[in-house]
Simulated assay, not measured.
Amino acid sequence: MTAPGAFERGTDGPRVILVGVDGSATSLRAAAYAAGLARRQRSRLVAVYVMEPAPPMAGWVPAAQAVAQEAAAEVDAELRQLSTRAEELGIEAEYRVVHGDPVTELSRIADQLPADAVLVGASEQAGHRVVGSVAVRLVRVGRWPVTVVP
């Protein structure tokens, strides 16, 4: 039980908001929503871009790996600009790039911060209805509120 007048972590609005970004339209909308929430709540915003490893078959086509790395570098550069823009708007923002599985890495960072809220964009891939999207998998982890932005 907390002292009278004291707030438990996460009960008076989020102090730390984590948003997963990957350059997709829905993740950029999630980043914009998270930035607005962070600005209104005076929260710290941590944007995380998780670079997934290249599929094993990419090694069969030498140019494919180079194209994938170039695309990831372009997404990274665009997301860095968004982080700078957030700071210009008076939002305490941090941008991180990590490598691995998006759910594993977002969960690890959310626990490490610790985050009060996690935001991600809805998946635009049809196969995720069967296998499960990053958003669905994060909700199943169930350690923080997860907002999925369409």
Rank of each mutant, 00 (worst) to 15 (best):
S27H: 09
A122M: 03
D116P: 06
A71L: 10
F7Y: 14
E92C: 11
P53E: 00
A54I: 01
A115T: 04
A110L: 03
P114G: 03
G59V: 14
L37Q: 13
R39S: 15
P56G: 12
A72G: 09
I17Y: 14
A68L: 14
V120W: 03
R15W: 03
L89G: 14
P56R: 06
M1Q: 09
G20M: 11
P55W: 04
P55F: 01
S43R: 13
G90Q: 11
L89Y: 09
A122R: 02
A58V: 10
Q41L: 08
S123Q: 00
V50R: 07
A3F: 10
L18Y: 05
L119N: 00
Y95G: 04
G5V: 01
V120Q: 00
D111I: 09
E70R: 07
A110G: 13
A68S: 06
V48R: 08
V46M: 05
Y95E: 08
E94P: 10
A63F: 12
M51C: 00
E70S: 09
A58P: 06
A117D: 14
V103A: 02
E92Y: 08
Y95T: 00
V67S: 12
V67I: 13
D76Q: 03
R15T: 15
L89P: 13
G36K: 13
Q65D: 05
A58C: 05
Q65E: 12
W60T: 14
V97A: 01
A117V: 13
A47D: 03
L119S: 01
L37D: 10
P56E: 11
P4T: 00
V48E: 09
A93F: 06
L119R: 07
D111R: 13
W60F: 11
V103K: 07
R9K: 14
Y49H: 13
D101N: 02
P53K: 04
D76C: 04
S107Y: 03
Y95A: 04
R15G: 15
F7S: 09
E70D: 07
P114H: 01
L79Y: 05
V61A: 00
E74G: 02
Y95P: 14
Q41E: 11
T84W: 00
E78T: 11
L79K: 04
M1K: 05
L89D: 15
T84Y: 05
V97K: 03
D101R: 07
A3D: 12
A117C: 12
L79F: 01
L106G: 13
A115R: 06
M51S: 06
P53C: 01
I109S: 04
T104S: 10
D12L: 07
A58T: 05
E87K: 08
L18H: 07
P4K: 00
Y33T: 06
D111K: 15
M57G: 08
D22N: 15
G100H: 08
E87D: 02
V21Y: 12
R44K: 11
T104D: 15
R9C: 06
D22G: 09
E105D: 07
V19N: 09
A68H: 02
T2W: 04
P62T: 02
V97G: 10
V21M: 08
A71R: 11
P53H: 04
A93Y: 10
I109M: 02
R42G: 09
A63G: 07
A25Y: 06
T11A: 11
A63K: 01
L106T: 13
T104W: 14
A38V: 05
Y49I: 01
A47V: 03
Q112V: 07
S123F: 00
